[in-house]
């Protein structure tokens, strides 16, 4: 199921309140959007994929605190499940993970033609992997540890790319 996120340019809608823990609040948002309720605010829906739980949890809190809709997945399979089930706009993806690695996840996302821009965020610096990721259509390739402003900047550029040329529905 392909889920299109409505983009409402220029209109700020209050975001859904954070869950007490601050994470997985995207599910509520997604639920609402599926039910036809417009999304909480005009900000990208982000899926964080990394096997470092501590890292994703912390980062998701920080993004959520900046009013981004954030979901997390701890491995590749879970990430693909979420994308397939709920959809997202931007995926922040680690490369080196147990089980399905980031490159494979990226490959699947692009094969299935989900409307998702993928930003690679990894501690691995091999040029070959960067090239492979970019060749497969990754929007950007960032190194850990990344400054949050760099990440948010990349997210916004990805979001703009995703919605380029689209008008208000």
């Amino acid at each position: 199921m392909l889920f299109q996120v409505p983009y409402i340019r220029g209109r700020l809608i209050p975001c859904a309140p954070l869950t007490p823990s601050g994470d997985r609040n995207i599910l509520a948002t997604m639920e609402k959007m599926r039910e036809g309720i417009p999304r909480a605010c005009g900000r990208p829906v982000v899926l964080l994929v990394d096997d470092e739980k501590d890292f994703v949890d912390t980062l998701s809190k920080r993004l959520a605190a900046r009013d981004y809709q954030v979901a997390v997945a701890y491995d590749g399979e879970e990430a693909l499940e979420i994308v397939a089930r709920d959809g997202c706009e931007i995926m922040i993806l680690d490369l080196k993970m147990p089980g399905m690695n980031g490159i494979e996840v990226l490959q699947r996302v692009k094969e299935e033609q989900y409307a998702v821009e993928v930003i690679i965020l990894t501690g691995h610096g091999a040029a070959a992997e960067e090239r492979a990721a970019r060749a497969l259509g990754a929007f950007d390739y960032l190194h850990k540890p990344a400054d949050i402003t760099t990440l948010i900047d990349a997210m916004h550029r990805a979001y703009d790319q995703l919605h380029k040329g689209r008008s208000t529905p």
Partner: peptide, 16 residues
């Protein structure tokens, strides 16, 4: 690579 991951966590925790 091994150091970058915990470093990223420190970064995010401090950021948080």
């Amino acid at each position: 690579h091994e150091i970058n991951n915990p470093l990223a966590i420190i970064n995010e925790k401090a950021g948080l």
